[in-house]
């Protein structure tokens, strides 16, 4: 394993990693609470995953196997770019197989395959503050979190139901963590929210530009906000994947021609490939 000359393992110097790990420990101790941290400028732009990268860089060791996905796929341009970055500065093994990774850095999706206790998932977060549209002032939002004063968020959901008949949030759907903190799960589709509840893996969230880290320790209660008479319902396209036939995974809509032709395929490319591989010998037998 070789890394770039003149750079520390995983780019960040050890003091910075220590600072970030301390923030991570605080975050794990207070599930769902945002911990400010001194984010550094990284060689990728703010808004493109610097928070997730700094978290990964701080927990990565030479024995780790890293998977990086964006929109559920390993081959999207930003996932490729980040995976290459870690190959250059850390020389770690990388993989596209969810089951083989020890650390998974993700943008906007949780893998379909359930994660294990020995895995860590690192989410890239653009906007860590779930209240920011309702209360743009950070000083006031901080107070609302301290006082667990979340009426404003429920008002927003009430307004959606009054106006549209149901809650309009389709992604970055707010959750209550450990029955105490309101948290933004990052812009994963609402469909993925239930996966966070009592997940066996450690979930870490990094927001580089906004300079916040937060965490959900393994086996923690995570509930999407709703009303008793308007319960949370995950949304997915009501189709089967055209490649693997799955009816319970999140699907991407692909436009195939300019006459309105479309097909739906699993967004999680690894999971879809695995399902297809399992089905293939059976199909061959038929």
């Amino acid at each position: 394993m070789s890394t770039m000359d003149g750079y520390n393992f995983a780019y960040l110097d050890e003091a910075t990693k220590r600072m970030i790990r301390r923030a991570i420990l605080k975050a794990v101790a207070i599930p769902g609470h945002q911990i400010p941290f001194g984010a550094r400028e990284m060689p990728l732009p703010y808004g493109w995953g610097t928070g997730g990268i700094q978290v990964t860089a701080s927990i990565l060791g030479p024995a780790d196997t890293l998977k990086v996905i964006d929109q559920g796929a390993d081959d999207t341009t930003n996932a490729v770019s980040i995976r290459r970055f870690f190959t250059r500065v850390a020389g770690v093994e990388t993989t596209a197989r969810t089951g083989e990774a020890s650390i998974i850095q993700t943008r906007h999706r949780i893998p379909e395959k359930p994660l294990r206790e020995d895995q860590i998932i690192v989410y890239q977060v653009p906007q860590p503050e779930p209240l920011f549209m309702l209360e743009p002032r950070r000083a006031e939002a901080k107070r609302l979190h301290a006082l667990a004063d979340y009426g404003l968020m429920h008002v927003r959901l009430y307004e959606d139901i009054a106006r549209l008949g149901h809650i309009a949030k389709a992604y970055d759907y707010p959750v209550m963590v450990n029955a105490r903190y309101l948290m933004s799960p990052s812009p994963i589709p609402a469909f993925d929210n239930p996966k966070m509840h009592r997940m066996a893996a450690l979930q870490l969230f990094g927001a580089g530009r906004e300079k916040r880290i937060y965490a959900i320790p393994p086996h923690t209660e995570v509930h999407s906000l709703d009303f008793e008479d308007h319960p949370f319902r995950p949304i997915r396209a009501p189709h089967a994947c055209a490649l693997c036939r799955s009816t319970d995974t999140y699907l991407d809509e692909v436009i195939t021609d300019d006459a309105g032709g479309r097909m739906f395929v699993c967004s999680d490319t690894d999971f879809c490939a695995e399902r297809q591989a399992r089905a293939a010998p059976q199909e061959a037998a038929e």
Partner: peptide, 22 residues
């Protein structure tokens, strides 16, 4: 920070957009 976040809109957002569509 500004250019990063403004320009990040170029990144794929199709998963979230799919949720909005549905």
């Amino acid at each position: 920070e500004a250019t990063g976040f403004v320009e990040h809109l170029k990144l794929p957002h199709y998963v979230d957009f799919q949720s909005e569509l549905e």
